[in-house]
Design a protein around this nucleic acid. Structure first.
Lengths: 148, 148
DNA sequence: TAACTTGTAACTACTTGTATTACATGTTAA
DNA sequence: TTAACATGTAATACAAGTAGTTACAAGTTA
């Protein structure tokens, strides 16, 4: 089981909006870069818009960034695309037996630990921005072009 | 999307094996505490056995712990029950367009970051042992019994 | 008005998780 | 040796989520 690719697609979209900021980034154009369907891109772009990360309006071609690149963390994207509901990264089996000492206490015992683990994950995502990703992409691009 | 409850059930099973170590912990007994099916318990117990965490043998009633409580971390359980394949917590959309600067570099740009985040999660799980969980359960149990 | 774009619903195919049933295999004790 | 019981495992069913696709209403622009 993996966290939905909507997350990585969201990162892809935002990076593309920056790198191709001179062009018009329609859902069809973005879909070709991601290699998927325009409708799926519009769905994800809509989520990014709801989170205040991009500007995109009905009828008007192209999406644009709504915030500074350095102001958008991967955590913002992660939360925007709804891949994991808050505090629900780990599924906890419900209705354990209340007649059992373990059953009636296990949930309270593991929930705080799951929260800590989830927060550790989110913290790691929170320190990386789309700007970092874009810089990395452009760097790799230059390296690829270099002839030895 | 959530990480399978096999993880929390695995923690439940191991805690129960300790707290009810005087009794015989058959799959049916454990299933009643977890409130699920004996077959599912046997499946998970089998995974814990493959990871060297419990002793359980065909035909012989009851599972027992195979390691010291303080030697079993939640990370051990997490890995034992196979809820997430290594390096695959985050799904990455495949076949991005190689003709696009973003498409041909995005995977390499985000993979290391996803790895770091995944490791942060695992680290948080690695510092908590089943002993900690058991202590917490017994503590809550005492608190529940206390009359003010 | 025509052409184009976004927003969104509906549908399909696929995968995974969980519950359940069934039964082969192994163990124990009368 | 047989009866009773436990584990291991396969098969099935169902729900939920993902991803791909089509279709079309509604908004925008020339």
């Amino acid at each position: 089981m993996s966290i939905s690719t909507r997350f990585s697609v969201g990162i892809h979209i935002l990076s593309l909006l920056e790198i191709n900021k001179e062009g018009v980034n329609t859902s069809e154009f973005i879909a070709k870069s991601v290699n998927t369907n325009p409708a799926l891109i519009r769905k994800i772009t809509g989520m990014l818009r709801n989170a205040g990360l991009v500007n995109v309006r009905p009828g008007i071609a192209g999406a644009t960034l709504a915030k500074e690149l350095s102001d958008i963390t991967l955590l913002d994207v992660y939360q925007a695309v709804n891949v994991v509901q808050d505090k629900e990264l780990f599924g906890i089996h419900d209705n354990p037996n209340p007649a059992c000492p373990v059953g009636r206490n296990i949930q309270d015992a593991i929930e705080p630990i799951f929260s800590i683990a989830e927060l550790a994950l989110e913290k790691a995502l929170g320190v990386v921005t789309i700007e970092d990703i874009v810089k990395d992409i452009l760097e790799k691009e230059e390296l690829g072009k270099r002839s030895f």
